[in-house]
């Protein structure tokens, strides 16, 4: 009798486990220090799988409802992760050091910034054929795509500018703060996060005017939820929460060590922050701003880009 119950339990567990990833909100955390991706189930707040990758995984992006892609800086490759079985299913040799990525899912396109070459490459995400290259300024890092305006925004870290691209041609370059790295866009605005000047640059995508908003020390990336701006401050071990209208600091939340990247889990109303120094991610309640949990990942957790995949 016990045996039969055990078997039923095991079969049920197996089925639940298999369907688990398809029906869960996932975070894909690239761990640059041990060449892995930690797959975190954000409903249960647990690491459900660790994938061995090529060397130096950094960027993350989702290319369609079933696939994510990571950029490996040291191996100079992209790797595709199947979100249903959580296996790596494809590997693309690039011949350049990839950093930021952003996809246009409807068009099956992926932009990848090439750090040393001052270029952005465009790929077809089905054939993985390289379609074109766009020459930008030095050290292109973060990329974001504003769907409403059809604009690609690129931070050029060593030239302190953001490049605004339309139809794969440079439309405008905008002066930012010092050392822009992360990029974010929402509505008619784009933002660069400026590591050395301890601020973010807000760019109006209609008239291209810009202004700076103060952050903590060595900010790295940001997100916006409703009327709040959230910025990770790598040298303060904090997350600045800023009122978007008044641009005043609401509170600095304590993270773990060297918080780098940040994403919003809309399904569970959570903020997810990767802590490079502690090898963890921190989960905060988006409404109460209270810490929920720190979760251990691989070494040097980074997850640069869109790393949260909502429940389907």
């Amino acid at each position: 009798m016990i045996n039969i119950s055990l078997k039923i339990f095991l079969i049920l567990s197996f089925i639940l486990n298999l369907s688990g990833c398809k029906n869960s909100t996932l975070a894909l955390i690239t761990n640059q220090g041990d060449d892995t991706v930690s797959v975190v189930n954000l409903d249960d707040l647990e690491v459900i799988k660790t994938l061995q990758t090529d060397e130096g995984p950094l960027g993350v992006e989702f290319i369609d409802t079933n696939h994510a892609v990571i950029s490996n800086t040291k191996s100079q490759t992209l790797q595709v992760i199947n979100l249903n079985n959580l296996e790596i299913t494809n590997r693309i040799e690039l011949g350049f050091t990839p950093l930021g990525m952003v996809s246009i899912k409807k068009e099956k396109r992926l932009y990848v910034s090439s750090w040393y070459e001052n270029k952005i490459y465009l790929f077809d995400t089905q054939s993985w054929k390289q379609l074109l290259q766009i020459e930008v300024a030095k050290t292109p890092s973060g990329l974001a795509y504003n769907t409403k305006q059809g604009l690609l925004i690129c931070a050029n870290r060593d030239e302190n500018i953001a490049t605004i691209i339309k139809d794969n041609k440079i439309l405008k370059t905008i002066k930012t703060g010092e050392h822009p790295f992360g990029v974010y866009t929402r509505d008619d605005q784009a933002f660069t996060v400026n590591v050395y000047s301890n601020n973010i640059t807000q760019i109006d995508l209609n008239n291209f005017s810009s202004k700076e908003i103060k952050s903590g020390s060595h900010p790295y990336n940001m997100v916006i939820h409703k009327n709040k701006i959230f910025i990770t401050n790598t040298q303060d071990d904090t997350l600045s929460v800023i009122n978007k209208t008044t641009q005043e600091l609401i509170v600095n939340l304590k993270t773990q060590e060297v918080p780098e990247n940040i994403g919003i889990d809309e399904t569970n109303n959570q903020l997810v922050i990767t802590n490079w120094g502690s090898n963890t991610i921190s989960i905060f309640d988006l409404n109460t701003l209270k810490l929920i949990k720190h979760i251990k990942t691989g070494k040097e957790s980074r997850a640069f880009g869109n790393f949260i995949w909502p429940k389907r």
Binding site: G56, D158, G277
Partner: peptide, 11 residues
Amino acid sequence: FAHGPTPQKVQ
């Protein structure tokens, strides 16, 4: 002001 893309870590 000169560094590559990958921060190094000693812990």
